Amino acid sequence: MAQSFWLDTEFIKQDYTQTKLPKGDYENCRFVDCLFSKAFLDNQNFVECTFEGCDLTNANLAHTTFNEVEFINCKLVGLQFDSCNPMLLSFQFDGCNLSVASFYELEIPQTRFLNCKLHQTDFSNASLKGSSFSGSDLKDAIFDGTNLEGVDFESAYDFSIDPTRNSLKKSKFSKDGLMGLLKKYDIVVT
């Protein structure tokens, strides 16, 4: 059965929690205020698409392709991005809730996580070289064996990163953010 192809199409206020999004290739499409919570988005192909105000909480992303996809003000709680197709994987996030999501072992350099909530998000063994967490809340986010070279943490907050377990060469931190690098030492700075 051949997959369908959608180009330059807008999907507005659609509910895909009961009816599945048709399998196919979506190029330069826009999804606005759509519900995908617990939906099956597996084996889909999204190229240069935008998701705005969508709820994808706990959606199944197995083998899904995200190439140059932007998520704006979306709820992406519990998503297993590490189950996506790693080929050409690239996305950006602005104002999204990515709590309890997983980016385990992904190669996602130059990714923007702007003004996002990333509570308990797993970045273990991922490569995030040159990425930005500008304005993001990283409470209990997991960085272990993570390549954070050149990453911008200047306006990120509530993070805890062990410099002995992660690569931080040329990463940017504000003076206030330096405490996030010292938490494991239980040092009191006044």
Rank of each mutant, 00 (worst) to 15 (best):
P163F: 12
S134K: 13
C54M: 07
D25V: 10
S174N: 05
E154D: 12
S124L: 05
I187L: 15
N85M: 07
F153R: 07
E52G: 03
T50H: 06
A62F: 10
N28C: 12
P109A: 08
P86V: 02
L181N: 12
F31G: 01
G53T: 02
L35Y: 08
F5V: 11
G53S: 06
I142N: 08
M1P: 13
F46E: 01
F11K: 01
L182A: 14
E70A: 12
N85W: 01
S160Q: 12
N97W: 08
D186T: 12
E149T: 14
G78F: 01
E105H: 09
L41W: 00
E154Q: 14
D152S: 07
T17Y: 01
S171V: 00
Q120G: 08
N85H: 07
C74P: 00
S171W: 00
R112G: 09
G135R: 01
D8V: 09
F66T: 03
L114Y: 14
D33N: 10
R165Y: 09
P86I: 04
D82G: 04
V100L: 13
L181Y: 09
I108W: 00
T57R: 15
Y104T: 02
E105K: 14
G24P: 02
L114I: 15
V100G: 10
N125I: 08
K139E: 14
K117H: 11
T146A: 06
D162V: 05
F173R: 04
A2D: 10
E52R: 11
A126H: 04
F51N: 00
